[in-house]
Amino acid sequence: MFVVEAYAAEGETQAGTEVPHDDAHANTFPPFDSSTFPSQLLWLVITFGLFYLFLQRVVLPRIGAIFETRSDRIAQDLDQAARMKDEADAAIAAYEQELADAKSKANEIGQSARDSAKAEAEAERKAAEAELEKKLEGSAAEIEKIKQSAMGEIGAIAEDTATAILQALTGAKATKAEVQSAVAKARG
């Protein structure tokens, strides 16, 4: 390498003779040796300038583009994730909806079955009640008839009894018509 050789060469010269080997500027403190300034400045301008142009034109736009692609990619992936989540949500909603429908349908069926059973039971009960009512009415009529006939017979018994009592008490004989009218009067 240049540097190493140059350094070594200079080192030998210096160590060998102790005499400044290179005109004046071996004695001055190197950073303040103005004879090297033009060279340093020129090469700084060249290297720094080219380095700047290279970074500005090539490297930095490239890194910027990498960042851009990455953020685009991330945004895209996020979008996709959001879309998939929406789809999943929609599927869940559809499932819930179907479940709710099925439930309500089941309820409906149960309800209608219950209703019809109830209606049937009600109708049966009504029929039975109506029959019982009819029977009751029939019985009441019978009782009334029996009562009427019994009441009718009571008149005859009363006339007989009254005739008998009258005969036993007074010995007089009342006509049947007289007793009849008297009994009818007493009965109202």
Partner: peptide
């Protein structure tokens, strides 16, 4: 005197190394 010196060489190495790496 705008000689190519060890400093010039190191400046070039600096620029080439940094630029090349990036």
């Amino acid at each position: 005197d705008v000689s190519f010196t060890n400093s010039s060489l190191l400046m070039i190495v600096t620029a080439v190394l940094a630029g090349g790496f990036l």
